[in-house]
């Protein structure tokens, strides 16, 4: 949250090499492990393997300008994946944060029983790696194995096909929500714990009910934490990969281009076309950056009005 605050720093004293020495490790790490790889990705994205000679020919790497970018931006499968990813985010982020907030507020009410056990229970899915979670849910989804379906059929209810073309989107989103609620709940719950008790005393003296306290006191006070979890969740959404990629071989409803990262993975590691994958990565990274800055600016303006 401090990262988001707009506090002023005192004017710095100039002189000496100390500032440079102190900042050097961070700069070196940044350049070595972030800027150089990004630069190399951009370089790769401007090149391609092209064949020379007849017969089997020989692939030779050469500069092709923006051809890869043209290819990516006109690839309907990639663009469909982008739209699907945005839709996925539009479903997952509000549902996940809504549930996380609800659970955090419930756990924060006075006289709640078994708070610790419940908290751990809700947090636990976050500790399950995404691939494992997807396999686990895959077993619950697969029509021939699903215990959910067998229970529904045994009581003569229609059993949904969780991996059908129209349902698979929500089945994947469900895994994301299941895995993400716990983490966000803990962040919000911690923020709630940081609110001084006098606030609640004052509200109660004024005759506020628990619900009114939650809506009028707690939520406004933890807005910075909400903004932070929202940003994290949005970025995680743009990186969604392991859930659909793990379910992909189990279902005919998830193509290998379901979300942009899957397309990038396929291009790089199945089709051996690292150059198209690099271009698609750059496009996705720029999109993520733009979206994050946009959301941050928007939320900051609303959330921190009082600061300015």
């Amino acid at each position: 949250m401090t990262a988001l605050s707009t506090g002023r720093r005192p004017a710095r004293r100039r002189g000496g090499s100390a500032p440079f020495v102190l900042v050097a490790p961070a700069v070196v790490l940044l350049v070595t492990f972030l800027l150089v790889p990004i630069g190399y990705t951009v370089y790769l994205s401007l090149r391609a393997a092209r064949v020379t000679g007849g017969g089997f020919g020989r692939r030779v790497e050469q500069f092709v300008g923006l051809e890869n970018y043209r290819g990516v931006l006109t690839d309907s499968a990639y663009l469909d994946g982008v739209v699907r990813m945005l839709g996925y985010g539009a479903v997952v982020v509000p549902v996940m944060l809504g549930l996380a907030l609800l659970f955090a507020l419930l756990l924060d009410t006075p006289r709640v029983r078994l708070a610790r056990t419940t908290r751990i229970g809700i947090f636990l899915p976050y500790a399950v790696p995404g691939v494992i979670a997807s396999l686990l849910w895959g077993f619950l989804y697969l029509p021939g194995l699903s215990p959910i379906r067998s229970v529904l059929t045994s009581v003569n209810l229609p059993a949904p096909d969780f991996l059908g073309p129209s349902t698979v989107f929500f089945s994947v989103a469900n895994i994301g929500v299941w895995g993400g609620v716990g983490f966000n709940m803990i962040v919000l719950f911690t923020a709630l714990r940081g609110i001084p008790g006098e606030m609640y005393d004052a509200a109660r003296v004024d005759g506020a009910s628990e619900i009114q306290i939650a809506l009028r006191v707690k939520i406004p006070l933890i807005t910075p934490a909400l903004v932070m979890t929202a940003i994290f969740s949005i970025i995680a959404t743009l990186q969604v990969f392991s859930e659909p990629a793990t379910l992909q071989p189990m279902s005919d409803s998830i193509p290998s281009t379901w979300v942009p990262l899957m397309t990038i993975y396929r291009d790089a590691f199945v089709n051996s076309d690292i150059h198209t994958a690099a271009a698609a990565s750059v496009v996705l990274a720029l999109g993520t950056l733009a979206l994050s800055i946009g959301v941050l600016t928007l939320l900051q303006r609303r959330a921190f009005r009082s600061d300015q």
Partner: peptide
């Protein structure tokens, strides 16, 4: 939600 980052690495390895 940093875990998705790590997971994608797992998935690639597999």
């Amino acid at each position: 939600m940093l875990r998705d980052k790590t997971n994608s690495v797992d998935a690639q390895a597999f």
